[in-house]
Design a protein around this nucleic acid. Structure first.
Lengths: 223, 223
DNA sequence: TTACCCGTTCATGTTGTGTTCATTTTTAAA
DNA sequence: TTTAAAAATGAACACAACATGAACGGGTAA
């Protein structure tokens, strides 16, 4: 899950980024509206967090321009308290939800999850494929009742694969979802991670759980 | 457990805040109805203490607006003796309990505990995980029948972990629940506390009781 | 005042993860 | 069968994340 944070308050950006990364999101931060628009249109994000009050180009402006480009990425607006009446404006412009600053982080997280679910991106916290199950809340992965210990990156990648059952998931897709904006693509990082995930789930059956589609990517079959 | 106190009497607020913090609650204070509403709607509290008599917006007003927003956070009303007849009004508006000023602090505490229990937030006063047990009322923590002496903050954090068995609890989550509203997040305070708790429970087995989930946070396994 | 406790910060040590790279194995096409 | 590209593999390294010990300072009690 990739999230773009657009806020001129670098401090707040940092806090949000850290918190979200703890929750297995990949986060990019930019500090003005123009960069926000640029990032948003050049990369597929699952959600965009937009501060309303920014110099030069406001969150409203960014949101309006996004929607006029038929970009329907979920947008969560951050507004200061005395801008509350702007809420209506924001929602009119196509924002999906708003949050009043200062806010509690768990509240932000809850709203993000709700939005992703609503947009069909997040779905259930429990994923299951055959003998393999994954719980995004407890961060537990089980293979035939045995707990599988995965690192953060491994967990993110497996989760992404499981959210796309039966589909071929290309390396670039995995890279785009699991890493930040700037990623040097000429590397076999994804291969290495797939190997490790397979190994940890089951040293023998691993290759059957995540199959290789030569020339394209990887695939997990449902059932 | 986070509590919001709304009372225009700053002195009383301070007293309540201090008393509750000594009993392992995290407390925010605001001094008028508008701010109360704002805080209540932007942050998830476990309980709200509302003074009835406040200039501009009364406790009744705040309570009414809260409930009309489908917010069912437990509300404890504080009323002066000569406003007793207002009791009915308050309860009608959705307050859960009331207390007559001046009151005894232990009485306040008892009612808060009762409310939290009733609303299922406090759940059982006794938490248990393997050889470790924690009693929220007596504030006792036992490890294999041995009493463990924890400071307030240590107790709050351990309690929070134990209320979330098996789940990964991130640093941001711990910070949000154990500290007041504004917390400078770039610090290793949580790490230090975890270390102390582990040490006090059992210098050797500590790391097994509270496990580290690298890149995410900490976890306590049930069973 | 002095002494003490607790919450907090800081500097330093330790370890696991993310990443790179070189080499071997598999696969599909010539 | 041969060959080249794609993928798998194992090992090594760097650094960020975490662990740890010590010290500071404000508040409280003796």
């Amino acid at each position: 899950m990739r999230i773009l944070v657009v806020d001129d308050d670098k401090n707040l950006c940092g806090t949000i980024k850290r918190g979200l990364e703890e929750n297995a999101f990949a986060v990019d931060c930019v500090h003005n509206g123009d960069n926000g628009l640029y990032y948003a249109s050049s990369t597929p994000y699952d959600l965009i967090i937009l501060d309303v009050m920014m110099p030069l180009k406001s969150g409203f402006d960014v949101c309006r321009e996004l929607r006029s480009k038929k970009d329907d990425t979920p947008v969560l607006m951050l507004t200061a308290r005395d801008e509350i009446e702007d809420r209506v404006t924001g929602l009119d412009l196509g924002a999906d939800d708003y949050l009043i600053k200062p806010f509690d982080f768990s509240e932000l997280l809850a709203r993000i999850r709700a939005l992703l679910r609503r947009k069909g991106k997040g779905r259930s916290p429990k994923l299951k494929m055959g003998d393999l199950s994954l719980n995004t809340v407890t961060r537990e992965v089980k293979w035939k009742e045995n707990l599988v210990e995965l690192t953060t990156k491994e967990f993110v990648i497996l989760q992404y694969l499981m959210r796309n059952p039966n589909a071929v998931v290309t390396r670039s897709m995995i890279e785009a979802h699991a890493w930040d904006y700037d990623f040097d693509s000429i590397s076999n990082l994804v291969d290495v991670y797939i190997r490790r995930i397979r190994q940890k789930i089951d040293p023998e059956a691993g290759k059957k759980i995540i199959t290789t589609v030569r020339g394209a990517g990887y695939r997990m079959q449902k059932g």
